[in-house]
Nucleic acid binder design. Structure first.
Lengths: 186, 186
DNA sequence: TGCATTAGTGAACGAGTGTTTACTATACTG
DNA sequence: CAGTATAGTAAACACTCGTTCACTAATGCA
């Protein structure tokens, strides 16, 4: 059954949609649509696929990657149970409409583990609170810094002792809040 | 046209599939499927949706978030052109079949900007080379460290001066290589 | 003003959809 | 061994799919 699911995943990765029953006939090398029908029912019971009326769609488990924790005593990944699943896209992106990505340049946030070349996910909507990493325009210049509100006026700080805090001379406008960082290796 | 695309995206986010033409009739508050047909054709020309035969599927641009760079001189996000797009899932996960997630515990990799609570994406397949961050079993204990190969024998290092290098007494087995890190803020 | 473009209606159509029923062969189980 | 799931074949079915054609209303342009 799992090799069938893998074939569907492969198809999905390539076409960005689930195959129809007759397409699955070819994928699975079967001759009867009823065989496919039964396979899909199993996958629905297993939680990988869902159905609304006659229309099938991947369930969240379909995309999810197993999430394991590293505990001193042992390594739980090999056991089928106690597994957690996480869909990265859903995890990282709250509202796709208001989110965008920003490639970080500079070392002003290394203290927070945000390096040059990293990609941050920024959401436009949400109000910023003190301590948030924000994309802001300070005195007509765009920058990515930590927002600090002490009393009435706000200023920006780096997470790098090399740089002093920035107090706006004219104005400080918050454009978005950093929700997540992402870094890819080599 | 863009509000129509937004409605489709909303549907997709909820159902994990594209709506059929008759479902779009409701979404768009239209009466004729031909109107939908024409709208979809425009979205295909715009590159958001693709078609194989009669079957529609989202193109990669459909999911992609705008990726901007922060240049000193100005802020390019407001301009419609010169925009880059990135699909996070595709960017981060190479081979979904062999990938899994690991929640990091400990501070042994802070030097690389990998903190306690971060999630790393690990791929099982690929051979590890010196300098890779690896999930390894050293003398029967699982750990996430930097692999170093000097000459014949390999050992593990931390990215934290607090910890000494680890030389295996019995054996060192590499289970997977860290491909990416992901961190979510509050 | 006249003409072309765009956006939408409405109906009809063949092809393909997922489902159902009946039946067969193989494999597992006590 | 007999009995029972399991996995697949084959054919038929209603229904929905995306497409097409002919037509209308509104809009923009020269």
């Amino acid at each position: 059954m799992n090799d069938r699911l893998d074939k569907i995943k492969k198809f999905y990765k390539k076409h960005r949609r689930l195959p129809s029953y007759s397409e699955m006939l070819n994928i699975f090398n079967l001759a009867s649509k009823n065989a496919v029908f039964k396979i899909i029912q199993k996958l629905i019971e297993a939680g990988f696929i869902k159905k609304e009326g006659a229309k099938i769609a991947p369930a969240s488990k379909f995309f999810a990657l197993p999430l394991v924790g590293l505990v001193k005593a042992g390594f739980p990944i090999l056991a089928e149970e106690n597994r957690d699943y996480l869909t990265l896209d859903d995890y990282l992106i709250g509202d796709p409409q208001s989110a965008f990505l920003l490639k970080v340049s500079g070392d002003s946030l290394i203290g927070l583990g945000i390096f040059d070349g990293d990609i941050v996910i920024i959401e436009r909507k949400r109000p910023a609170t003190s301590g948030d990493i924000v994309l802001a325009q300070i005195d007509r210049e765009w920058t990515l810094k930590i927002l600090k509100k002490d009393g009435i006026r706000a200023h920006l700080e780096s997470a790098n002792p090399k740089y002093p805090p920035f107090y706006p001379k004219q104005n400080l406008e918050i454009f978005g809040v950093v929700k997540a960082v992402v870094r890819k290796f080599n």
